[in-house]
Structure formats: structure tokens, C-alpha cells
Design a protein around this nucleic acid. Structure first.
Lengths: 195, 195
DNA sequence: CTTCTTTCTTAATATACCTTAAGTTTTTCC
DNA sequence: GGAAAAACTTAAGGTATATTAAGAAAGAAG
């Protein structure tokens, strides 16, 4: 795929939620940056600040953090046409405590914050689009709090598969375990027991 | 306290984050509604839709939901000068699955959504203020996901006390237990063990 | 194709947390 | 102030999940 095709993917994605005129699209296209990541490469690391919105045009990404015992906890996963970020750092402009990492060779369509905020003034539809996205992110994370309170790990695993059907096949089990908050050994045990 | 004092409390609260002119304050005041709740009374119940932003002028509130086993899970707590809501329902305009309940006799300063959205057009500072609030809510809930992944319940309890120092004394232990995701018996055991 | 590395599984032992039940303390309300 | 209700504690026995360690399978690299 060419860069233009990646940009078209983003534009069609946005058009699912809001109307864009030709001039909106031109203004949007002007601020786009394409970023390629190798497998395992980091987009964001602790103490960096997120300065862009990142649309996955190709590949697979995750965000995670390390606890005091250096255990990984995966917070978010994404594949083609999902957004990935440390939204905390992006919104608050504070330093991230997280890693955002490519799990496969990945191509991102990026919108840098400063230019994007300028664009909001010119193209209200884009502002509206991101308001919706941030609301959805809020809803999703609240869903995650609720799911994580279901103390049966197998129920959480079923919830995970429901929300991430397409992703489950593409990421290693140990990352799913770190998303669910169990050890890989226990996830392996659960999968055997219920199959 | 009189209604005017409750309104002043809200205005001063907003002024901590954004500048308000006299005419902004007048426009804001026009849309305000005061709501009194008895102890244990519900502001929101499942299948209702949240249609206002709710500022606690006096009292103590919580939001919680019931899981399939009818267990309560407390998601948010708040006292004077905190906001309480099912922000999911408010933002998405969908039916809530949660309860929002007064834990003490409570007085809310409410801003109804339709009028508030009109006000955003007239008074950008108010729009800006709520953008900040919703970003903060996002940050807080992400914090909560991260905290809830610390699998040592006593660590979560210490985190809870750090973020809710003023609230801990005012709410029953069993609600704290339902916030932490443990049984009241186990919380009681932990408190004894670590004291 | 072969070797090295990463990921996944199995199983034994250990522990955090739950369930139940009963007793105690605190709060509510007439 | 006293009775009833609500909240808190204690303890015994049970279950879900962690830890450790070792081997098997799958993937990456030369």
C-alpha cells in the first residue's frame, strides 16, 4: 500500500462518523504524518509525552505499563483502523508512564497535536469526530473497569474474546494474560480446562 | 446554607480552572437547578439516562452497579465540590446500567444537558471547563484500571486512602470493600493484620 | 534445514481471597 | 432511652490464582 492509500483509509474511517467536504479533506491531509514501526519498536516510552493521535493503518499495537515488580500490564490493543495512544499523556500533556509498542511491523497515520488543534478551529467536523472518539474511549475504559471486577478470570477471558475477536489470534497468549491480569500459566490452565 | 451559597460554591469551583465574566456567571446561573436527596435516595437508576452534570454542594454520593450475582461494585465516590454522574450515560445519551446514590443527605447543583450545551455556545469558558473535567475523569478512571491491577488488596486499600483521604471516614467499610473488589470480611481482616 | 530464542504447557506447592456463620458493635428511629 | 436494623469483626474451611521449575512447541535467524 502507498501512503495515499493509508490516508484514504483514515479519511473513510472519519467519514463513518462525520461529514467531510473536499476542502476539509485537503486541510486534514496537510497535517498528516506517516510513521513506520518495526516489530517490538516503541512509539511511546515512560517519561515521554504523547504529542499525536495515532491511527493504525497496518499492523498491531499495544499499550502497557510495568508495575513495581516489573510485571507487564497490557491496557489496550489495536489493529488496522483502531486508534492507539497514551490518551492520558496526550490529553494532559504530562509525561507518560506507559509503553506503546508495535507487536507487528506497523504503519501509523499520525495527527500532531498542535496542528490538530489548529485544524479544530478550521474544520469543526474534525473536532466533533475527536470529541466522539474521546467519549468512546471513556466508555471503553469504564467497561474495562467493570469487566475487571468480574473476579472469575475465565469470564474476563470470554469478555476479552468478545471485544477483541479479531485481535486474539494475532497476539501472543502472554500478552492476553497480562491484559486479563493473570499469569500465562494460569491462562493456559483455563484454556485447557474449558476446551 | 442557602441556594445562593451553593451556587457560589460552584462558581468559585469553576473559577479555579477558567476565567468567568459577570455576564458568564449570570448566564450560568440561569440554567442551574438545585436538587436535594435524602440519605440512600437514588439520583440515577438502571435504565434511566443521565441528563445533567451534578456538582455536590453538600453531602456524599457514590455510583455503583450490580453484577449478575447481585454484588455491588462501587465505581466512584464523591463529597463536597466533587462531580458525580454516570458519565457514560451522560455522554452517550444511552441508558445507564448504574445506580448513583446519596450516602448522606445531599444537595446537588445541577446543569441540565440541553441548556448546558446551549450555554457552551454562549460561554466558551464553560465549554473549556467541562472539557478539562472530562479529561480529568478519563485520567482518573485510567488510574483506577491501573490500581485495580495491583493484585495485592492491601496495596489497593493504601491507594484508595491516598486518593480518598477525606472520604474514607465518611463512608461505611462495606462500600470501601465494594470499591476495592474484596469482601467486607476480608477488608476487616486486612485492617486488623496491618494495624 | 538447523540452531537459538521465544512462547506455551504441565504439574506440584503455596497463598490470597472467598464463603459461611455467629457474635459484637454502632446507628437509626420511634 | 430502648428496640430494631445496619455495619463490623472473628474464625474455620474452601477455592481461585500465583509461583516455581522443567519440558514441549513454535517462530526467527543464519
Amino acid at each position: 500500500m502507498t501512503n495515499n492509500e493509508y490516508i484514504t483509509l483514515l479519511i473513510n474511517h472519519i467519514k463513518k462518523d462525520v461529514l467531510l467536504t473536499e476542502s476539509d479533506i485537503i486541510a486534514l491531509t496537510k497535517i498528516i504524518e506517516i510513521r513506520e514501526l518495526n516489530k517490538k519498536e516503541f512509539l511511546i516510552q515512560p517519561n515521554e509525552t504523547s504529542n499525536s493521535m495515532n491511527f493504525i493503518a497496518k499492523g498491531c499495537m499495544r499499550s502497557f505499563y510495568l508495575d513495581e515488580d516489573a510485571q507487564e500490564h497490557t491496557l489496550q490493543l489495536g489493529i488496522e483502523e483502531w486508534w492507539i495512544n497514551d490518551l492520558y499523556s496526550y490529553l494532559s500533556r504530562k509525561k507518560s508512564r506507559m509503553y506503546v509498542q508495535a507487536l507487528e511491523p506497523t504503519i501509523l497515520v499520525q495527527l500532531p497535536r498542535l496542528k490538530l488543534e489548529q485544524l479544530y478551529l478550521e474544520v469543526p467536523a474534525i473536532s466533533h469526530f475527536f470529541r466522539i472518539k474521546i467519549q468512546n474511549a471513556y466508555v471503553a475504559i469504564q467497561e474495562r473497569v467493570i469487566d475487571s471486577m468480574s473476579d472469575e478470570a475465565y469470564d474476563r477471558y470470554k469478555d476479552f474474546i468478545k471485544s477483541y475477536r479479531d485481535i486474539e489470534q494475532r497476539v501472543p497468549q502472554y500478552i492476553i494474560a497480562s491484559y486479563l491480569g493473570v499469569t500465562p500459566e494460569f491462562l493456559s490452565y483455563l484454556r485447557k480446562k474449558h476446551s
